[in-house]
Amino acid sequence: MRYTTEDGGRLNNFAIEPKMYKAEPPTKRQQLNYIIMGLGALVLVAGLVFVAASVS
């Protein structure tokens, strides 16, 4: 376990930090998948709103 010793002999525990990495921008295929999923979610929500409005 990692810890540091502060003034007065107190121990201070720190969480183990994950390694940092740079995020890569999405590829064209991933962008297309995001658009398709967004449109699917929009159709689902619009359908649910329509059903809720027609029932009430």
Rank of each mutant, 00 (worst) to 15 (best):
N33W: 05
I36H: 01
L32D: 09
L32V: 06
K19R: 14
E6P: 00
A52F: 10
Y3V: 03
S54L: 12
G8Y: 00
M37T: 10
G40K: 01
T4Q: 10
N12C: 08
Q31E: 08
K19V: 14
Y3A: 09
G8K: 01
K22V: 15
A46H: 02
N13C: 02
P18E: 12
M37V: 12
K22P: 06
A15T: 09
A46L: 11
Q30H: 11
R29T: 11
A52V: 04
A15Q: 08
K28N: 14
G8S: 02
T4M: 09
A41D: 02
N13D: 09
V45T: 11
D7E: 14
K22N: 15
A46D: 04
S56P: 09
M1L: 09
G47E: 02
A46E: 06
S54C: 05
G8D: 04
A52P: 01
V51D: 01
L42H: 01
V43H: 00
M37A: 14
M1T: 12
P26F: 03
A41P: 01
E17G: 05
A15P: 08
A23F: 14
G38V: 01
L39V: 08
M20D: 08
G8M: 00
N12H: 14
N33P: 00
E17W: 05
V55A: 11
Q30R: 12
A15F: 08
T27M: 06
A52E: 03
L32M: 08
P18W: 10
P26S: 03
K28F: 15
N12Q: 12
F50M: 13
